[in-house]
Design a protein around this nucleic acid. Sequence first.
DNA 1: GTCTATAATTTGATAGAC
DNA 2: GTCTATCAAATTATAGAC
Lengths: 177, 177
Amino acid sequence: MPKDRSEQILDFAEREIRKNGFDGVSFRDIADAIGVKSASVHYHFPTKANLGAEVTRRYATRFIEALGSASDPSETSSDRMRRLADGYIEAYKEDTSTCLCAVLGSVVNHLPDETSKEVRGYYAQLQEWVRTALSQSDTALAPNVVVGTLQGAMILALFTDDAAPLIEAKNHIVSLA
Amino acid sequence: MPKDRSEQILDFAEREIRKNGFDGVSFRDIADAIGVKSASVHYHFPTKANLGAEVTRRYATRFIEALGSASDPSETSSDRMRRLADGYIEAYKEDTSTCLCAVLGSVVNHLPDETSKEVRGYYAQLQEWVRTALSQSDTALAPNVVVGTLQGAMILALFTDDAAPLIEAKNHIVSLA
DNA sequence: GTCTATAATTTGATAGAC
DNA sequence: GTCTATCAAATTATAGAC
């Protein structure tokens, strides 16, 4: 079955936001890319604030679900950190683009409320997952440090156009978890 | 002596870019803020690519110079990491805004060439400083990890509106250096 | 659902007077 | 150096026909 239009729009919007930022994509860009007019995009997502929110919500759901359980007793903390880091690495490789969070996070106070609310929600979920994932370990790693390290590595990966900084961050975190 | 106009423009442009991103500030915003017309801003900085480049160059120079020596033999690696982290913390406190690098770095491939060139140059300098600063230590900390961790913590600090993630990142890096 | 048409605003940028 | 005046293009968004 063919992809429905809303999904097509979200796909392209997500890719462009991750590459160019929230202000770096327009309704016309999206419309042109999928072969409709901008008014049709507005039919599916009435405002840009709404579009940003939906892109973020979908991204968050996908990312968090892919992480799986943070409390499976058959796993170690390192196992979970490895999965987390791999999530970032895959996100990077998807389109040699950053995670949505690094792009939208750095300008969160500039985003429309409807969008920033979702970005904050995503961070809260991620933070909670890491907190749980590390809760049975006596590691000195703070959840903030884990998330920050991967986030920052994402940006560095963009510069070198190479996943190496992400691999280093992964090794660092896994070895300390 | 009064600040000259170019400096006033750079001051405001830097603050806005760090809060709202490169696309989040316009020549008119700047002109209004300092009480001139947008044509006057263009007189000092002919294009936005040029303005972005000058803002970045000035920011980089200030930040790197504030770091001081990366090879003073009377200091330990931890001392240097402490200074580096404090640089980020001060940058955050300046206006509860991110470092320029986190904002521009995440969309580096979307920036005009003239601007992105300066952003990349800044990163190279920073990376080199950290590499030198750690070169006499047998720490397992990679320069990428150090920079990434602080960068990522900056973004997290924005969310919580609190420097706590930066403090955690600082402690983490200093203790491992 | 998609279109045409259009409104209202904002953007980066330039020409030329003072 | 700053101004007025202006441009061409792009932006988000809406009304109404099909």
